[in-house]
Nucleic acid binder design. Structure first.
Lengths: 116, 116
DNA sequence: CTCGTGTGCAACAAAAGGTTGCGCTTCGGG
DNA sequence: CCCGAAGCGCAACCTTTTGTTGCACACGAG
């Protein structure tokens, strides 16, 4: 059902810090480990590790500019991740609906039997 | 933007094993730690810990039956989690769209300037 | 009652996430 | 030119999470 690549994408966006980092990169545009750490409750080194994780799964990519290293979101890969989210969401949604239907059917048949 | 409760829900469903467990509970109905461990690549004890995590955030709840302990999905809470997923997904989707619009606008103005 | 099966608890190993400290580039003002 | 400030990466270390094994206990069927 789920592939290793999908699992990596999931665990990448499963972390609250990493989700916030993606939010920041999307809203403020490209940023560095230092600029991001100023808006997050962790040190630059922790941010740097998260950036490495996101880079490894391809959700962001870096560009060196002098002594700075600018990261920005890879739009295509993030779109893939969003698709994953909605896929799992709709699967669960469908199953919840089906369970509800079955439960209602059982309820109906129980009432019918009682009426016999 | 994101609350502590939301983060707990996210990290709960962020784990591939836990996502699979929810899938199994949805598709096969209520199950025990032992029955789930037979369909997963980890030991019963590991499954038991994951069940404890899912229980703590309210995504599942248990019911004792003799010496067995049956777990099943809490539909309302899972529906909440699905809503979270789609919320983040649509937020990122909207921002990706906006970035694309801006990029196109810049592209247009650049061409205009070149034409002057 | 006794044996098989399902559970929980404890101790331990490995991985993830976080911090501090250090040393190496690179930019920019004297 | 040069030297300090700013940005970055690497390494050592700590804590939490995830996984394992081992053991003791409870329940149900023969």
């Amino acid at each position: 059902m789920s592939t290793a690549v999908d699992d990596e994408l999931w665990s990448a966006i499963g972390d609250p810090i990493r989700r916030t980092m993606i939010d920041l990169l999307l809203s403020d545009g490209p940023g560095t480990a230092t600029s991001l750490s100023r808006r997050l409750p962790v040190t630059r080194q922790a941010v740097s590790k998260h950036l490495a994780v996101l880079d490894r799964v391809g959700l962001i990519h870096a560009e060196s500019a002098g002594r700075e290293r600018h990261y920005q979101v890879d739009e295509a890969q993030l779109a893939r991740a969003v698709a994953q989210l909605s896929a799992v969401g709709s699967t669960w949604d469908a199953r919840l609906r089906r369970i509800k239907r079955i439960a209602e059917a059982i309820e109906r048949s129980r009432i019918t039997k009682e009426g016999e």
